[in-house]
Design a binder for these strands. Structure first.
Length: 576
RNA sequence: CGGGGCGUAGCGCAGCCCGGUAGCGCGCUUGGUUCGGGACCAAGAGGCCGGGGGUUCGAAUCCCCCCGCCCCGACCA
């Protein structure tokens, strides 16, 4: 559509550029600070430069790619009825105090010294405030509000280039609904839009069940890309995928024996670990109830885990509805009279006691006697102590059977591209954002929130699409579709290349023209592969003498000779 | 925040152990020769050796403090 293309480069951005006049500072050597391919290549291709830890300048080429991604995101958000906003980065701190998130974000929130403002790390509060002031009737909903805007988070350790920065661009959207069913619809619309966005961006991704963490709410899913550089750990099976924070598996429970034997105290000198204990007492791990002691906010809680099962802090946090942290060794001694290896549930006073589901109803168990170097054997959790409740609290391990019965779990690392949350009424309650229903009764607005990391899409695309020579852009993401190279500075070559350049511009084709005169052919080819446009159009003297122009596909390396007269038509056919 | 590494020309690095006032490659400038896979020759420009303090006749080099960057961990919508 020629008209759209016209709009494209008139109002949006120039769709053509001469390399001789552009600022695209490519570098030959791999920067020593960069470890992962996307980071190395984004620097080498002149897309970004570091300004401070976790803070990057986007240079023209990088900015073009970001704009491509933003356009895709805009189109898909608009398609589900989203309305674009631009909310401020500066935000009054009182607003964040009202929702308890000054504390929740802690040091991760940037505070301003000379005003009572914070730099917004996300925008639930601002959205909710707008809703509180202007949404008053069920007739005003549903709404989907979004923006593509810079977020600030004081990450303790930025890393992996733009994958984890202290400042980054996020597409964040928020749904406002009158009911939980309506929230489900808004949530599903987002899930579908996200699938389209990541597919259009040429990313291989998968969706996992996730923890809501400090965002609060009733459910969430993450859109992940498998990558060693990732910071999330994912459990995957044939048809199951979940963040390790919430992943479950079909491991067997500790069996309850028919007979509960009498409990007895056993001297276990110098036994510190579960493995030593199992060896010393000659019992299997399923008979051991390991005690792990945490603070849940300021209350001590003893958690019983089977054998060597690892306690999952995220799960514990959800169960307790509180911040959790391991208890200090001295405090533990003071409260129980024993050290870490000898703690148990029997006769323990002042502790909330919960246990992993694997131990539910078990008997003839071994646990600490709350006396150093002593354990109790034949504990019956129903008979001998008060376990308040059982929950899934363990961290799954690779090789365990999938909870849906299909295959075994494998554990992979992933990068979180997007995250969608059913928030519910957490923010509308805190800020009293209510609406009146058909009968005139007030209810809190039901919210959802949804985020996509823009830089992550770009970096992940490069992680998945590169080779030893450089980036390999997908057409949808490429800053330019065509990298036109005038191989030599001979008159005929230059004239032909110039003609192709202007013809492509007239046609609305995005073209980067390597018109540099004092640069050797090899240098131009290396740059072209590094920058990674989908097609290179190579105008060289010998081919041209035979009336031919070469097209090289970056992805396959495949070269085609085309009659000079047909070159524009040929290029057009490639870009359909 | 804990552990480790690094900071010397725009970039990548050597020199530091063993103190004597700075070097290599790339890039850059000028001239010339090249022109299909990061060309060659010649002549140049460019550094408060991250900052401060100390030791010493003398510090890039040894000692102390600080700052910055990277990696591992902790943390993380």
């Amino acid at each position: 559509m020629p008209v759209l293309r016209f709009i494209n480069y008139t109002f949006w951005t120039l769709s053509f550029m001469r390399l001789s006049k552009s600022f695209i500072p490519t570098v030959k050597e791999t920067p020593s600070d960069a470890v992962i391919p996307s980071h190395q290549l984004m620097i080498r291709a002149g897309m970004v430069r570091l300004l401070a830890a976790g803070v990057y300048s986007f240079l023209p080429l990088g900015q073009r790619v970001m704009k491509k991604v933003m356009e895709i995101v805009r189109e898909e958000m608009d398609a589900i009825g989203g309305q674009e906003f631009h909310l401020p980065a500066l935000s009054p701190i009182e607003l964040w105090e009202q929702t308890g998130r000054v504390k929740a974000f802690g040091d991760n929130l940037f505070h301003l010294k000379n005003r009572a403002l914070v730099l917004a790390p996300t925008h639930e509060e601002v959205i909710c405030l707008l809703a509180k002031n202007h949404i008053s009737s069920y007739k005003d909903m549903p709404q989907i509000w979004y923006q593509i805007q810079t977020k600030f988070r004081n990450e303790p350790r930025p890393r992996s280039g733009v994958l984890r920065g202290r400042q980054f661009i996020m597409k964040d959207s928020y749904s406002l609904d009158t009911s939980w069913e309506a929230l489900d619809r808004s949530y599903d619309l987002h899930a579908e839009a996200y699938k389209k966005i990541f597919t259009r961006c040429g990313l291989k991704f998968f969706i996992v069940g996730a923890s809501s963490g400090a965002m609060g709410g009733t459910g969430s899913q993450e859109f992940m890309m498998e990558a060693d550089a990732g910071e999330d750990v994912i459990a995957l099976a044939d048809s199951y995928a979940a963040n390790i924070e919430v992943a479950t598996s079909n491991v067997p429970k500790a069996e309850r024996s028919a007979e509960s034997k009498p409990m007895a105290e056993v001297h276990t000198p110098n036994i510190k670990t579960i493995d030593q204990l199992a060896e010393f007492l000659k019992v299997e791990h399923a008979r051991l109830a390991k005690s792990v002691v945490y603070w849940a906010d300021d209350k001590p809680v003893l958690v019983l885990m089977m054998g060597n099962d690892e306690l999952n802090e995220s799960k514990l946090m959800s169960v307790m509805g509180a911040d959790v942290r391991p208890i200090e060794a001295e405090k533990l001694l003071a409260l129980t009279g024993a050290d870490g290896g000898s703690i148990g549930p029997v006769g323990l006073k002042g502790f909330k006691i919960i246990a992993d589901k694997r131990l539910e109803g078990a008997n003839n168990l071994v646990s600490g006697a709350n006396k150093n170097d002593y354990h109790l054997v034949n504990i019956d959790l129903q008979r001998d102590c008060k376990v308040e409740s059982y929950h899934d609290l363990r961290t799954v391990q690779a090789g365990e059977p999938s909870p849906d019965g299909k295959g075994n779990l494998r554990i992979v690392k992933g990068v979180e591209l997007g995250h969608i949350f059913k928030l519910g009424t957490k923010y509308s309650d805190a800020l009293t954002a209510t609406f009146l229903d058909e009968t005139g009764v007030a209810h809190p607005i039901i919210m959802g929130s949804y985020g996509i990391g823009m830089e992550r899409i770009v970096a992940c695309h490069i992680e998945q699409n590169h080779d030893a020579n450089g980036i390999i852009w997908d057409k949808a993401m490429a800053p330019f579709q065509i990298h036109l190279i005038a191989v030599s500075k001979s008159e005929v070559v230059r004239e032909m290349a110039e003609k192709i350049y202007t013809d492509l511009i007239d046609d609305g084709v995005e073209v980067l023209f390597d018109d540099r005169v004092d640069t050797s052919p090899g240098f131009k080819f290396k740059d072209a592969d590094l920058l990674g446009m989908p097609y290179q159009v190579i105008v060289g003297e010998k081919n041209l003498a035979a009336g031919k122009i070469e097209i090289k596909e970056r992805k396959t390396g495949e070269r085609t000779l085309v009659d000079a007269a047909d070159i524009i038509t040929k290029i057009q056919s490639l870009l359909v």
